[in-house]
């Protein structure tokens, strides 16, 4: 059974290996706007992209669908002293599904209940969560674009293990979407909506081919 599970993930990854996470209709821009003749109002200055305010801990309502598994409950996130995050997902009755720690160089699964305890799954989840928590610094090629249809500012960051695309509102003050694809895993799309006090109160992470959907609704943050 474990072999079948791992094999099916591997085949899914092979089949989608060429699927790009790159948003469509991008026009490259430079800081001095030399190639930005299409969208003139950005030519004076390119906005500095927004980043989430810092927080110590957050509580979110969560729903995680992984193929036939449907898990609901609460996600508790606590920033750790080394700038990483501890993430605990438990069901409504308090029993823990998983407890993990993610930092720039670390990904530790402290606890995971048995049906979810699959190496292949956690490899994919690591990519997904690294995108969500932006744990990796840009380490390679970067790029700036405008998306023609939406006027979104799009930033590309090639990181050590994945390529991420962040789509900001045209004013640069709202992160709308993050897309990414690692060398190993399928593409991931994360949407951020319903902003309250600088935080998106609704986050949806979708890895459609391997059928992972994580929905988060913010309950409290401080």
């Amino acid at each position: 059974m474990r072999f079948l599970f791992c094999t099916s993930f591997f085949i899914a990854i092979l089949l989608t290996g060429c699927q790009s996470a790159k948003p469509k209709h991008l026009v490259p821009v430079t800081d001095d706007c030399t190639s930005l003749h299409i969208i003139a109002h950005h030519c004076t200055s390119l906005p500095t992209p927004f980043s989430f305010p810092t927080f110590e801990k957050a509580l979110l309502k969560a729903s995680l669908e992984i193929r036939e598994h449907h898990l609901t409950g609460l996600v508790f996130i606590k920033k750790m002293p080394d700038a990483g995050c501890r993430i605990i997902f438990s069901n409504e009755f308090g029993m823990t599904y998983f407890d993990l720690e993610i930092g720039s160089d670390t990904f530790l699964v402290h606890y995971c209940f048995e049906p979810l305890n699959k190496k292949a799954l956690w490899k994919i989840m690591e990519t997904d969560l690294r995108l969500l928590f932006a744990t990796e610094e840009a380490s390679g090629e970067t790029g700036k674009f405008i998306q023609k249809e939406t006027n979104y500012l799009v930033f590309k960051n090639k990181q050590e293990n994945l390529t991420r695309w962040d789509l900001f509102s045209s004013g640069g003050d709202t992160l709308v979407e993050t897309r990414g694809r690692s060398n190993l895993a399928d593409q991931v799309v994360i949407t951020f909506t319903n902003y309250q006090q600088g935080f998106p109160s609704r986050i949806i992470l979708l890895n459609s081919f391997v059928k992972i959907k994580l929905s988060l609704s913010l309950l409290s943050i401080n």
């Binding site: 309502k61 729903s63 036939e68 598994h69 898990l71 609901t72 069901n91 009755f93 029993m95 048995e114």
Partner: peptide
């Protein structure tokens, strides 16, 4: 069955073993 923000979702306890076990305990 779960009612969350006006949306109803139903699933079988077998798709969530922890839920199923806690339900049995309660």
């Amino acid at each position: 069955t779960i009612l969350d923000e006006g949306t109803i979702k139903s699933f079988n306890t077998k798709s969530n073993k922890v839920f199923s076990e806690v339900n049995r305990i309660i």
